[in-house]
Nucleic acid binder design. Structure first.
Length: 423
RNA sequence: AGAGAGGUGUCCGAGUGGUUUAAGGAGCACGCUUGGAAAGCGUGUAUACGGCAACGUAUCGGGGGUUCGAAUCCCUUCCUCUCUGCCA
């Protein structure tokens, strides 16, 4: 959520930046300032009258104590008159505040200066390419064929149990999921992240705080009886640990990592893009999250990108890092780097991680602050990234490590799996 | 799921309609004292909104109500604890 005061003080800059995100209705900036002006005015009149009421009430108490009935009756009448003015003011304030809220949540975060112009994924900027294209055997297959052949994942039975997009992992497939999770968590905690195991359902307040509500309501599974949402990512519960808090400056940076299943309804497209493990309704992911001093978030973003890069390198996967253009970025993000892994069998890049700096957009929304050295309250910056999303890494490893006779494993995973090969 | 007890500031805790301007204690910060420390003494120590400021307003889990006036009374909701039940 953007702050009105920022828009007030940087109106033109804000409009320029919103345009980079292809936000259409720039007049909304002026509108929100006008609504805020009205809110201030109403607040001032309200406070003024309320102040008189409070003073009179106290005076009445004094008169009552002394038994001065007449004086207190006169004052009571005066208070009654003021209160009549107060009621319509209160109603109007509620309306104005609601419309202010309704307008301000429509603004996406402003893009960082580094964000390239552009509207479509083709205009994303390739920052780096690393690793080598694997040389596959002549009989190489895509992962959806391999997992079927080796009975690692059974989509049909998953569909019987629940519905399409709910994979059932079996045997070595199930174990491989566990091994990947364990390796990712170990890799993250070794770098200083604290491991969390959060609730997999959240209430509406938490979903609002990280920005899933109100915009993405239809993309989450909703348990209506208890009004809980199944999490689309561990980012939601873990970031909310620090909702409504005032931290000490010395608490920062907070570094957290968490494994969770992720539930996404996303209607999605058809064909190759969604085949096999490329897009599913339930998948596992290990997430990294940081809450940091505002001066540090640029630096921390680079550290997080380097961290994920190291992790991909350790798996021996070919990857590329994209800096997303204004039109392809998420709503709440100021700058996002996507990681894609090359699938030689599918001959395409698969997104496996997305690392973003949200600056104060989430922390303002969920009131996560810290007290600086001068005792002033500031909003912290939040960042997060996947390290990593499991199904696509599963798919990429299965495809890229396939041999004439089976499927090998990256060296770092062999001790975790207790074997040199998956198959 | 049923019955009961609770939810007050950073923490503990007092407070059942009117100097509560939330007592008292602890912690923390600064100062005095000291060779240094502890103890002692003094001062300060929530958040949001409005205001250049003085200051004003709101907040005692959340929401609503009664009243001239609510931490206190009423309704509602969430959460915690104890007992009983059920359960991996």
């Amino acid at each position: 959520m953007l702050q009105v005061n920022f828009l007030r003080q940087n109106t033109e800059l804000a409009k320029k930046k919103l345009a980079i995100k292809h936000f259409a209705n720039l007049n909304l900036v002026d509108e929100v300032i006008a609504i805020d002006d009205e809110r201030k005015q109403l607040q001032a009149s309200f406070d003024d009258i309320q102040s008189k009421v409070n003073a009179a009430s106290k005076e009445i108490g004094g008169h009552m104590a002394k038994g001065e009935k007449d004086q207190s009756e006169t004052l009571k009448n005066a208070v009654a008159d003021w209160k009549k003015q107060l009621d319509p003011l209160k109603e109007k304030m509620a309306l104005v505040e609601a419309s202010l809220q309704q307008v301000i949540v429509q603004f996406p975060n402003l893009p960082h200066d580094l964000v390239p112009l552009g509207k479509t994924p083709e205009e994303n900027e390739v920052v780096r390419v690393g690793g080598e294209t694997p040389k596959l055997p002549t009989n190489a297959e895509a992962h959806w064929d391999l997992i079927k052949k080796h009975n690692l994942v059974d989509f049909e039975t998953g569909a019987k149990i629940t519905g399409s997009g709910f994979p059932l992992y079996i045997g070595k497939g199930a174990k491989f999921q566990r091994v990947l999770t364990q390796y990712f968590l170990d890799f993250n905690t070794a770098a200083g992240y604290t491991e969390y195991l959060p609730p997999f359902m959240v209430n509406a307040a938490s979903a609002f705080a990280t920005g899933q509500l109100p915009d993405k309501e239809g993309q989450m599974y909703h348990a209506t009886e208890d009004d809980f949402y199944l999490i689309p990512t561990a980012e939601v519960p873990v970031t909310n640990v620090f909702r409504d808090t005032v931290l000490k400056e010395s608490d920062l940076p907070l570094q957290m990592t968490a494994y969770s299943p992720c539930f996404r309804r996303e209607a999605g497209s058809f064909g190759k893009d969604v085949r096999g493990l490329n897009r599913v309704h339930q998948f596992e992911k290990v997430e990294i999250i940081q809450i940091v001093h505002p001066d540090k978030s640029d630096e921390v973003l680079n550290e997080m990108v380097a961290h994920v890069e190291k992790l991909l390198t350790s798996l021996g996967l070919q990857y590329r890092i994209l800096r997303l253009c204004g039109g392809d970025m998420g709503f709440a993000s100021a700058i996002t780097y996507d990681f894609e892994v090359y699938s030689a069998a599918q001959e395409r890049w698969l997104e496996v991680s997305s690392v973003s700096n949200f600056q104060a957009y989430q922390t303002y929304r969920m009131k996560c602050r810290f007290k600086d050295a001068d005792g002033k309250i500031q909003f912290a910056h939040s960042l997060n990234g996947s390290s990593l999303a499991l199904p696509r890494i599963f798919a990429a490893i299965v495809e890229n490590y396939q041999t004439e006779t089976g499927i090998a494993l990256p060296k770092v995973l062999q001790p975790y799996f207790g074997a040199e090969n998956l198959i």
